[in-house]
Amino acid sequence: MSFEFITEYWPLYLQGAGVTLLLAFFTVLLGFAFGILIAFAKLSKRKILSLLATTYIEIIRGTPLLVQMLIIFYMLPAFGVQIPNLFGIAKFGDYSLVVLALVINSSAYIAEIIRGGIQAVDKGQTEAALALGMPKSLMMRKIILPQAIKNILPALGNEFIVIIKESAIVSVVGIMDLMFAAQQVRSATYLAFEPLIMAAVMYFIMTFSLSKVMQYVEGRLAKDATH
């Protein structure tokens, strides 16, 4: 095994890792926003909303991310959706499409995280809030969500880690993420697996650091919860 290629190709790896992190970051951010909507739809008393949300979640969780991504990546342009290169970013349209695919995928999981977090709050809290004359929106914002967030945040961090790993499939459609960098190095150096091991190490560094950060945050939250 030879890892000398690193001296020449490390900038490519760093660039790829940067793309991977950015993709994951935007996916979690938008997936969270979208996930909130889906979670509330699923919790809604309106049967139609709740049914739509449940269907969405089940379909997304029941099909492979790769399939979802390829459908979106090839179908939207085929139906005439054209995204110009905004912000001077080359291939902005391609990036947008894969983020869209990742967001659609992760929002289903995040919606379930949020719904679970809300439902894990003791029913008595709702009753006490209602009994004090609170309208439902106030109760949700000031009583339920602040407690639910303690259940939601750790799982959300975990989802971030999952997305960092799963996002490797965007390399399939030519997005220059960490996985794509590894493939490029493979074909340039004719090394079969060393470039992949390098990518694995970098994925691990990212996910491991993030999980350490999450542990710290969780510790802080747990301390808060035991006031």
Partner: peptide, 13 residues
């Protein structure tokens, strides 16, 4: 009509 519950249900946060 205020209500007092068996399990208090104070807001923990």
């Amino acid at each position: 009509m205020g209500m007092v519950f068996q399990n208090f249900h104070l807001f923990p946060h």
